[in-house]
Design a binder for these strands. Structure first.
Length: 778
RNA sequence: GCGAGAGUGGCGGAAUUGGCAGACGCGCUGGAUUUAGGAUCCAGUGAGGCGACUCGUGGGGGUUCAAGUCCCCCCUCUCGCACCA
């Protein structure tokens, strides 16, 4: 008997066979299930926190297969991006090569977890075959009037003379050299996401997912704004705002239309031109920023309190900070005495009647700035001609290939690295044929990832971006799984692009994802795993020591998948013990179980002796719980595993109790025993696939366990025929009595009252649960 | 500041419609087995009390026969965004 599951001997064998299993025939779209996991950035190493995403997705894909679905589970690489360029600069390796190496390594990591995909559909966003179509998308947007050029600020390091990403700015300083970062205006490309703001907001209702709320923060309606009256004020010459929260008195006054009082007008450094009209009403008594402005400024600015804190009386003390809570209005003319939240609406109504105000909706959504002054991205396919202006590269000339031999070290003139390649820059104008220059910026990597899920259906076609027919049959994605960090922008951009393609008539759906699931982060020592904190847990040593199934089971068992969880090295052993407990169930009984498939073993539940019914019932209850818990929509693998542990414990007890009968091959007992083990394996297999497949094969089944259907539930046996009735007095438990399952209320009441002879005022009877007796005094 | 989420044993976490709080696992304790250790198997394990009992789901109120769950107020923590008013 082998005491431990020999995972090292069998894992590889199964990885090879599963590749076939996961190859999807997309021509058959009936009963399709598109299970999409966010394609990762190939940063080099996956840790167990990343693993959660892929393990959840893999387990789900396998459950769906066993439910009979035609599962499409593809994978690819979001392969353009800043880290490749940083690594290149640091280690003097070409970004393309660095990326390629990382992809190779990460693919191996997927494999070791037993996470399987349809690799025949692999896509890599940095390959010309792919980014050709990212460029094509840009041109479509441009031709539809949704791409435009405008000056916008970038972070600029005056010492490195280069553009910095937000991430590279730490505390206002360049992370590399520590110089103070400046803002510099550059002409850049934008996509008009704002044009889709209303639809992006409205259609959120089509997405049944918890994360909707997160995105509501991104596209948000701003409330009432008093625009009209302030527009009349002439804004004086603006003083340059190089200091924070300082102001300049214009000498002008505005009139507060609600009270008809004069208000001094200031220029303030902290008011953003880009937001709203660029003009705001300062309320120093009730806005902390305005309050600080008044405090920091040498100017004499009156602070008028207009909200009296709830419950306060008499003279109001001088404020030490802005009062931002509820209260009633004071110093507000006709609105005095009204609760501030109500007054807000009242003031609006009054002004609206006079035609002085109107409600406006402000989406907290900017147009999408897609230009990046970087090398490692898809070149923007535009040509600048002196005579014809900016013109798109003709579609037949795509892709605009990213030249390999470019010096992408910081050059110090602020231009994109591509500008150094004369060969790249110099071109002919496609309109007039004259000498012209290519745009030297590349696209934001979010553009690459905003359409990749369409490409998976036909990853290799070179005459178009995607096959509309296949895409229409397979999308929207049935289940999208990914990290919370991408739940906002990536989702927004993908939705924008899909709506655009819908408007262009290229696809017939306008939301890309049917359901989204964002899994929680895995923490370690109270912080999320990161290289800089040095708290990452690598999967390899764990898989080496305990096997892939242990790591999978632990990862799924750690907690509800949507919540954050703390990694605990020692608790991994619990998963390891469980795996081996299941294995021993087999190995202890190998004589019986080896090739048991070839024999007919069956049971008739109706004919089972009473002492065997509890196990049969446990099998039914577990089956019900696992299938409901996982496929019922909540992906609660943690409770599914716990109930499989319970079942395992019960099979152990059964095995021990009927040891001799099993040895003697008693038909009924062996039948139930084998059934229990079969169901245990079927339910466990998506989560611990190596173990389950191996035992399944040894039991003599010729086909993969993932080609089996999930066990069905004999629902008659879900409820026990007896249960523990709780008897409460005044809501406190006073007795517990075993009763028959179908006992009616009257009978229950009688049983309870006989048990405790109490003069009852009132009795609450809940069949199946409890009897609560209410008495006057205890 | 805005937005989102979360507070249950020593720890991770369970608890249909409000109906036995703490399933399952980790850790700990004890027993079996073993020359011993490890591994394995079995049992116990919220706190207090000898006890019948009492107290317990961040804190305080409330609704109810009954509250982790519903309502009001407060506290703490985590994440995301932001000179966005």
């Amino acid at each position: 008997m082998e005491d431990y599951f020999p995972f090292k001997d069998v894992e590889e064998k199964w990885h090879k066979r599963w590749e076939e299993l996961f190859r999807c025939d997309v021509a058959k779209s009936e009963n399709k299930f598109y299970c999409l996991m966010m394609f990762p950035y190939p940063s080099g190493n996956l840790h167990v926190g990343h693993g959660r995403n892929y393990i959840i997705g893999d387990a789900l894909a396998r459950f769906k297969m066993m439910e009979g679905a035609n599962v499409l589970a593809p994978m690819g690489w979001d392969a353009f991006g800043l880290p490749a360029e940083n690594a290149a600069i640091k280690n003097n390796i070409h970004p393309a090569e660095w990326t390629k190496n990382n992809i190779k390594r990460m693919k191996e990591q997927f494999d070791r977890w037993g996470v399987t995909y349809d690799w025949s559909r692999e896509i890599t966003s940095c390959e010309p075959e792919y980014y050709k179509w990212t460029q094509w998308l840009f041109i479509r947007l441009y031709k539809a009037g949704l791409a435009y050029k405008q000056a916008a600020s970038v972070n600029w390091c005056p010492s490195c003379k280069t553009v910095l990403a937000n991430e590279q700015v730490v505390g206002g300083e360049c992370e590399r050299c520590g110089s103070k970062v400046e803002q510099k205006k550059l002409e850049q490309w934008f996509f008009k996401t704002r044009k889709y703001a209303e639809r992006l907001l409205q259609d959120l209702d089509k997405l049944p997912m918890a994360e909707v709320l997160i995105e509501r923060g991104g596209v948000k309606e701003e409330g009432v704004r008093f625009i009209e009256e302030v527009k009349q004020i002439q804004v004086a010459e603006r003083e340059k705002a190089q200091f924070t929260k300082k102001g300049f008195f214009t000498g002008c006054y505005a009139v507060n239309p609600a009270t008809n009082k004069k208000i001094p007008v200031f220029l303030a450094s902290y008011v953003l031109m880009e937001y709203g009209t660029g003009v705001v009403m300062g309320v120093p008594a009730h806005d902390q920023r305005d309050f600080e402005f008044v405090k920091e400024s040498p100017l004499e600015i009156p602070v008028i309190q207009v909200i009296r804190p709830s419950g306060s009386h008499g003279e109001l003390p001088e404020l030490e900070a802005a009062y931002t809570n509820e209260g009633e209005m004071i110093n507000s003319g006709p609105f005095d005495g009204i609760k501030n939240s109500i007054a807000m609406e009242k003031i609006y109504e009054t002004l609206a009647e006079k035609g002085m105000a109107k409600k406006a909706v402000h989406y907290r959504l900017k147009d999408w700035l897609i230009s990046r002054q970087r090398y490692w991205g898809a070149p923007i396919p535009m040509i600048h001609c002196k005579r014809c202006g900016t013109v798109p590269v003709p579609e037949e000339d795509l892709p605009v290939v990213l030249p390999e031999d470019v010096d992408f070290m910081p050059r110090g003139d602020g231009k994109s690295p591509l500008a150094t390649s004369e060969e790249f820059v110099k071109t002919k104008c496609p309109v007039c044929g004259d000498d012209a220059e290519r745009d030297t910026d590349t696209m934001d990597t979010f553009v690459d990832s905003s359409w990749y899920f369409l490409r998976y259906l036909s990853p290799n076609i070179d005459e178009k971006a995607f096959d509309s027919d296949l895409v229409n049959r397979w999308l929207p994605v049935d289940q999208y799984i990914g990290g919370i960090e991408h739940a906002i922008l990536h989702l927004l951009y993908s939705r924008f692009i899909v709506k655009f393609l819908y408007d262009e008539g290229l696809i017939d759906f306008d939301e890309p994802f049917e359901r989204l699931f964002t899994q929680g982060m895995i923490y370690r020592d109270g912080a999320k795993m990161s290289k800089s904190k040095g708290n990452v847990v690598s999967p390899e040593p764990l898989i080496e020591k305990y096997g892939a199934d242990t790591v999978r089971i632990y990862t799924l068992f750690i907690g509800p998948p949507e919540k954050d969880a703390e990694w605990n090295d020692r608790a991994v052993e619990g998963a390891y013990r469980f795996i081996n407990r299941v294995w021993r169930l087999y190995s202890k009984n190998a004589q019986l179980l080896d090739n048991v498939a070839d024999r007919s073993v069956s049971i008739d539940p109706e004919a089972l002796p009473a002492e065997m019914i509890p196990l049969y019932r446990k099998v039914q209850q577990t089956t019900h719980k696992v299938i409901e818990g996982v496929l019922g929509g909540s992906f609660h693998f943690n409770t599914a595993i716990s109930s499989l542990m319970e079942l395992t414990n019960e099979i152990y007890a059964f095995n021990e109790r009927f040891k001799e009968e099993i040895a003697k091959q008693d038909e009924a007992i062996v039948g139930l025993f084998v059934l229990s083990i079969k169901n245990l394996l079927l339910l466990l297999s998506p989560m611990a696939p190596h173990l389950s497949e191996e035992i399944w094969e040894r039991m003599g089944f010729k086909e993969s366990i993932f080609k089996q259907t999930l066990p069905t539930v004999d629902s008659k046996y879900i409820l026990a025929e007896k249960y523990t009735l709780v008897v409460q007095i005044n809501g406190k438990i006073r007795a517990k009595i075993e009763v028959e399952k179908d006992t009616d209320s009257d009978k229950l009441k009688k049983i309870a009252l006989e048990n405790k002879r109490i003069a009852a005022l009132k009795t609450i009877t809940i069949p199946g649960k409890l009897v609560n007796i209410v008495v006057k005094e205890r």
